[in-house]
Each structure stands twice: as structure tokens, then as C-alpha cells.
Simulated scan of single mutants.
Amino acid sequence: MTDKFPIEQVIQTLKDDLPTLFEKDISYDIYTQNIYFQDPVNKFKYKFNYRIIFWTLRFHAKLFFTQIAFDVHEVYQAAEDTIIAKWTVRGVLRVPWQAKIFFNGYSTYKLNANNLIYEHIDTWDRKPGEILRQFVQKGDK
């Protein structure tokens, strides 16, 4: 694509897509083919793999949770080539003791000259092991 995306459109697409990422697919028009993604447990490159991670999130959300939400608190331009999205994941695990999952994080999106996202780095407020430990706690904690 040679046309430059307006940054407002990229921000609006993120605002529209992120809250429902556990329910339906996102729009991939705002990402480059060689998008790089990293979070505390995954690291990969290319749009095909990026699509798979979102499919996997939806699949596991339906399989393992009775309730799951991705609450977006804000999405804003932090620098000329950077967008930040602050969010919370919360849910109830599909187990008899109704364990709850809850963690905060933020996504840093880097933009190329055409305002397409070429890098997406997620930062969580706790380690993956701490999040997994929530699965064995009773839901009232």
C-alpha cells in the first residue's frame, strides 16, 4: 500500500477492534505484512502469525472461560510513530470454583512512514506465572 493511513484512522480502528478481540476478528488493514509481535510469552513476525494469535485468543476464550473481557481504557498517540493502548483482561475460568483472571497491560504500536503498524509489543503488570496462579484460586478472591 502506498497511500498513507491517517493516524486518526489507525487509532479509531484499534478502539473499535480491541474491545471485541475475544469475540470477533480484528481488521488487519492497519498492519504491515512483516508485523513483529511480542508479549511476555510469545514472539513472532508476519501477518499470518499475527492472525493466528488472534484466532487462538478467541478459541481459548470460548473454550476456557465462561466470561472474558478486554477492557480498553485509552488509545492515544504517544509520539509521531507510536500509539499506546492501555487495557485490562478479566474473566471467569470454566472450572467449578469459578477462578477469576485479572491483569492490566498496555500495547505499544510502532508506525512506519505510511502509518501502518509494523511492531506491537505488549507489556503486562505481572509475570505470566502470577496470572496462571489465578486459575487455581477460588473466584471470590
Score class of each variant (00 low, 15 high):
K4Y: 07
F5Q: 06
F5G: 01
E8L: 03
Q9H: 02
Q9C: 00
V10E: 01
V10L: 03
I11Q: 13
Q12K: 13
Q12S: 05
D16C: 02
D17Q: 13
D17R: 11
L18K: 04
L18N: 07
L18Y: 09
P19G: 06
T20D: 15
L21F: 05
F22Q: 02
E23K: 14
D25V: 03
D25K: 07
D25I: 03
Y28F: 12
D29P: 02
I30L: 11
Y31D: 03
I35M: 06
P40M: 14
P40S: 14
P40G: 08
V41F: 01
N42L: 02
F44T: 09
F44N: 10
K45L: 01
Y46H: 15
K47M: 10
F48A: 15
Y50D: 15
I53C: 10
F54A: 00
F54K: 02
W55I: 13
W55E: 15
T56Y: 11
L57D: 00
F59S: 12
F59K: 11
H60G: 05
A61N: 02
A61P: 01
A61G: 04
K62I: 05
T66W: 02
I68R: 06
I68A: 09
I68F: 07
A69R: 09
D71N: 09
D71M: 07
V72N: 05
V72Q: 04
H73Q: 06
H73M: 08
V75T: 13
Q77G: 04
Q77N: 08
Q77H: 01
Q77Y: 04
A79N: 08
I84K: 04
A85E: 00
A85T: 02
K86S: 11
W87Y: 14
W87I: 04
V89C: 05
V89W: 07
R90F: 09
G91F: 12
G91L: 05
V92C: 05
R94F: 09
R94E: 08
P96E: 02
P96C: 02
W97Y: 10
Q98N: 09
Q98W: 01
A99L: 01
A99W: 02
K100M: 05
K100A: 00
I101N: 00
I101E: 06
N104I: 01
G105R: 07
T108W: 08
Y109P: 02
K110E: 15
K110S: 09
L111R: 06
N112I: 04
N112P: 04
N115M: 13
L116A: 10
L116R: 15
Y118Q: 08
Y118P: 10
E119Y: 03
E119P: 01
H120K: 15
I121N: 10
D122S: 10
D122W: 11
D125G: 11
D125T: 09
D125S: 15
R126P: 00
K127E: 13
K127H: 14
P128C: 11
P128I: 10
G129T: 13
G129N: 10
G129V: 07
I131K: 03
L132D: 15
L132G: 14
L132F: 13
R133E: 15
Q134T: 01
F135V: 08
V136L: 10
